[in-house]
Amino acid sequence: MKANPYLPSLAIIEGVKEEVEGNRAIKTFRLAFQDDKKKNFSFIPGQCVMISLFGSGECMFAISSSPTQKDYIEVSVMKHGKVTSALHKLEKGDTLGVRGPYGNNFDVEGWKKRNLIFIGGGIGQAPLRSVINYILDNREDYGNIDIIYGARTSADLCYKDEFVELEKRNDVKAHLSIDVDEEHWEKYVGFVPDNLLEVNPAPENAIAITCGPPIMIHYVIQNLLKLGFKEEQIYTTLEMRMKCGIGICGRCNIGNLYVCKDGPVFSYDQLKELQGDI
């Protein structure tokens, strides 16, 4: 008999990092499985986990750490509901339930030797961080890397100190932006899709991966097509409300596909064919 898919494994919070403050606060939780058997929890960037806070409920999150990091997994959580607000009150040493990994993944094998352009907005950077860190740990397998990332204000940017480190490297280019100008901001001011046109990446031998708010994704895809990217060179992730995470409770369908099981990663040519309420 297969394992009970609804039973979470226990994980201890090893650290909490405050990424963004305010009423749309974001925190990154580092989780280590309590049970030794789970130490070899394996996943591929793009996959998700169901996180339980017992008594408050469950939520699905993209894993934001890289699978090359074996000792823990990380999830970045924006506070905007009952479960996420309760999660934000937790501290190092507290216990959570984790089940997964769920869903499909970014094709990191198939993307070897290609130039990669990551285009993220806000909390949408979480799944991209997983791929980016994976690729940086296997740097020689991939071509050029551009990371285009923006948020409303500089305070809303996630992973700020990691970007400081990225900017020091010469084997990746980071292009940060904020929506409206601020004092002391010397990088791009404007929306992420416009910054994409500014960076103007070449489509040859490239793959573009974009995650963020739906409206941003919409314009990013339009601009990528303008730059000459083909539909099958563009990837994104979809979000839906989820409960079971395993294609049974019925809630996350788009047409005949379940985002929890058949997604969350879709290429734009697949996405265009999808007929359903998104």
């Binding site: 339980s52 806070l53 017992f54 008594g55 009150k89 507290d94 216990t95 959570l96 339930g97």
Partner: peptide, 8 residues
Amino acid sequence: TPGKKGNV
């Protein structure tokens, strides 16, 4: 067991 020291 509910709460931040939960158990299943």
